[in-house]
Design a protein around this nucleic acid. Sequence first.
DNA 1: TAATATCCGGAACACTGCTCCGCTTTGTCA
DNA 2: TGACAAAGCGGAGCAGTGTTCCGGATATTA
Lengths: 199, 199
Amino acid sequence: MTSDSPAGDPAAPRSKRVDAQRNRQTVLTAAAEAFVAAGVDAPIRQIAARAGVGMGTIYRHFPTRADLVTAVYRHQIEACAEAGPALLAGHDSAYDALREWIDLFVDFLVTKHGLADALQSDSDRFAALHTYFLDRLMPVCAELLDAAVDSGAIRPGTQPYELMRGIGNLCIGRDNDPRYDPRRLIDLLLRGLRDPGAG
Amino acid sequence: MTSDSPAGDPAAPRSKRVDAQRNRQTVLTAAAEAFVAAGVDAPIRQIAARAGVGMGTIYRHFPTRADLVTAVYRHQIEACAEAGPALLAGHDSAYDALREWIDLFVDFLVTKHGLADALQSDSDRFAALHTYFLDRLMPVCAELLDAAVDSGAIRPGTQPYELMRGIGNLCIGRDNDPRYDPRRLIDLLLRGLRDPGAG
DNA sequence: TAATATCCGGAACACTGCTCCGCTTTGTCA
DNA sequence: TGACAAAGCGGAGCAGTGTTCCGGATATTA
C-alpha cells in the first residue's frame, strides 16, 4: 500500500518500469497457480517456467520465498484481519465472534495446501511469512480473545500467540484423510477454553 | 525383537557378518547423535561421516530414512506403548491414566527435535515412520480412550487417530519459544474432551 | 535518436537424497 | 593354512533443489 502507488507521490523517486510491473504480476499469478498445484513449496524453476520468466526475475521481485507467499495471499490475510472487528461488532456474544473468526482462519489455512506447514516450518525461508502473519493477525486475535474473556465466556490465561500457533499446528497436514479433521480438534480446544462457570 | 536374535533360530539361514553388525550399531549411534544435533533431517552424508562409513552402508542397513529414525527411537516407542496398559492398571481413574500416557507421549515428541515435524511431514520419506508410530501406539491410545469413555470421564466420539495426530501436530515446532508450550494446549484439548456431566 | 538506468535470463555453484558397481573383508571348507 | 565365494563397503555420479551473478536486452529520458 505504500510502494505500489505510482501517482503523485513526491517522495517516490521514480516509478517502476512497466515491464517490471508486468512481470511482477505475471509471477504472482503463476505462483498462485503453482501453489494450488504443488503447495507453497513449489520449485522456483517451476514457477518461473509457468510465468515464462527467468529465475532471476522472481528473486528480484521477491527476495525470499516468504515474500512471494505473502504477496500471493496478502488480500486474504487482510480480509481475515479485517473480519475480526467486524465480527465482534456484529455479534452479541464475543465468544461467537471468536469462534467464527477462527473458522475463517482455519478455512484459509486448510485451503492453501501446505500453508500451515510452511508457517511452522523449521526452515528460515519462511520466517518472514511467520512474522507477517503474526504482526497482522495476532492483534486481531488478541482483541477477540480479550473480549471473550471480559464477557466471561472463556477462562483467562490463554495467550493469543499460543492459541494462533496451536490452531495453525492443528491445520498441518496436506492430505484429505477423513479420519483427521482439524475443525473437530479446534472445537475441542475451544470447548476447553470455555469457563464452566459461565454461560 | 524378531530379527536381532542370532542365537539358535533354526529358521534364520545365517547370521550377519560381524563387521556388518558392528557397522549397523555404529551408524545407529552416529545417527542418534546427529538427530540430537541437527534433528531427524540431518543429512545422510553427515551421519556417514560421523560414523566413519560410506553412505552406501547406511542405505544398506536402513533403506529409508524412516527405518533409521525408527531404529534409533524403537526402544522409546516400545516403552511408551508398554506404559499404556501399565498406567491403566495402576490408576483408579482411566482419565488420569490417559492423561499421564499423553504426557509421556508429548515428552517423547518434544525432546526429539523435529520428530513431531517429521511425523506429519508431507514428504513420503517418513511415511513408514508414520505407519510404525500408528501401528504401535494407536491401539494403546484406543484402549486408554475407550476406558476413559466407558468410565464416563470423557465424552464419546473422539477417534484415537485424530487425537494422536492432533497431539502430534501440537508438538510441532523445534524452537523453545516460551510463548508456546504444547502442554498447555493439550491440556485445553483434554479439558474439552471431558464430559461436563460427569466427575 | 542516443545515452543510461533498469531489468531480464539462465548458467553456474552449493547442497541434498539416492543408486550403482568395482573393490575389500569375512566366513567356510578342504 | 590357503583359496574361494559370498557378503559388505565406499564413494563417484546422477538428479533435483535453492540461490547468486553478470553479460546482454529493454525501457525511459533527454
